[in-house]
Nucleic acid binder design. Structure first.
Lengths: 250, 250
DNA sequence: GCCGAGAATGAATCCATCC
DNA sequence: AGGATGGATTCATTCTCGG
């Protein structure tokens, strides 16, 4: 390993770098759980009908990027980029390792394509139900996020069969350190797919929720983020020690 | 209209024919809500080409539910076929009409492609949460079905914004007349997208749940099914008159 | 009528075996 | 070799029936 960790303690390692630079150096990964940038926010729909572009601006997790509006090139580059990191992550993973990739509805078909093109066996779409609805102006309110999941070849033998739908309210207020942050309970739900002792990888760590959940479950973990501000936030969060009750908080 | 209705009463019409034969003759459709054959059911071709009862209810001892046809297409023909009927349905629809197409996780990306290629504006993925799931041995249990939805051009103005996730247990026992039957409450949920008085179309009627829900909501409806056994079941079900309580049973 | 034990069920999946 | 078939298996929930 030539890359230098930004943080390392208690089986948890953080790299402050581009995912594609670090992933080729990893091996022995037992589970990949991540929430990559969606590159969504309404920028990619070939949009014949949308009246007001402004309604997508800043309503999602990403700002609208006008230079990409209505251009399917980005849909394709999102596919290529997703395939690249997913393949690199799979190369470092053991046989049977599960992969979980968050996506919004817009990018879900591209994500399922990327997972398969990268060599993973796609096995399903799990749903994180946020328990509330946001009216989106044209019809149904979006109250769920999706997780495209699969395995590296045949699934490892497992004792736990988590449900394909998990209900949990989103993070709010001071606990929210990142615009796209997921609650730890959501990550613990997905980590039930990991076998005992599996090395957890999150190539787009953000504020470190996946790593925090892995730590609370007693699993070693590797996180990568290119933004040093988030590496710092995550490192602080992980340095706070394990939670009481053996990390089995509901 | 040259096709001869199999049943017609109280604003409800049933055609016993192939969807692609009848759809070109329809016009003025205000909402398309349907549950087409998924052509899904397993990673192995042998599993997919099995009869629907064998591949979907193999563990059960019940054999009284009729088989249904058109469930063994491969990926390419499923896409082409879906595009064809979706386009034909759109041609007969008024501007702003919503479309809702059920899918399982495996066919969801193909379904979103077909909806868009057929000229509909894709607007989201809604989730029917069944409340519990069937374990599949390799990881998460599948406890949801998905609804790809959109509109014919700009969405019609509406007052009702149904939630993007709806929880309701699946039909069981004698109320279940079709292997893939959806509860009426699920269909009423989707029909909230229809404007008042809209003509509802279900090209793959099955046992007629969509039509029954439309009838209870006071909406006119057209159903199509190629299997006369299901046309008979649906006609009987629709001839029973409106439910008490103004059709707002929970 | 209430409760609990045991059986049944589900738009599966995987593997062994037989043509 | 490759398609077709039979059957074991997984868990949450509901159903059935007896006490």
């Amino acid at each position: 390993m030539t890359a230098e960790p930004y943080y390392s303690a208690d089986g948890i390692t953080i790299y402050c770098a581009e995912a594609l630079d670090v992933l080729p150096e990893l091996s022995g990964v037992g589970a990949v759980v991540t929430d990559p940038p969606y590159s969504s926010g309404g920028a990619f729909r070939g949009d014949r009908t949308r009246g007001v572009v402004a309604k997508y601006v800043q309503t999602g997790t990403l700002a609208y990027r006008p230079e990409f509006a209505g251009d399917s090139r980005d849909q394709r580059s999102f596919l290529v980029w997703s395939t690249l990191w997913l393949n690199a992550a799979r190369q470092g993973s053991v046989s049977g390792a599960p992969v979980c990739v968050f996506s919004d509805w817009r990018q879900l078909p591209t994500t399922t394509d990327a997972v398969q093109v990268a060599g993973w066996t796609w096995r399903g779409i799990a749903v994180w139900a946020k328990g509330y609805g946001r009216v989106n102006g044209s019809g149904m309110s979006s109250s769920a996020e999706f997780v495209c999941w699969g395995t590296n070849g045949p699934a490892a033998e497992r004792e736990d069969y988590p449900p394909g739908l998990f209900t949990c309210p989103p993070e709010r207020g001071e606990d929210k350190r990142h615009v796209a942050q997921k609650p730890e309970a959501v990550m613990r739900w997905l980590l039930r797919l990991a076998t005992p002792g599996a090395l957890v990888l999150d190539p787009f760590m953000g504020s470190g929720t996946t790593l925090r959940a892995a730590m609370d479950l007693g699993l070693p973990a590797v996180g990568i983020d290119s933004d040093e501000r988030y590496c710092e936030i995550a490192a602080k969060r992980l340095a706070q020690g394990v939670l009481p009750f053996g990390g089995v908080l509901a």
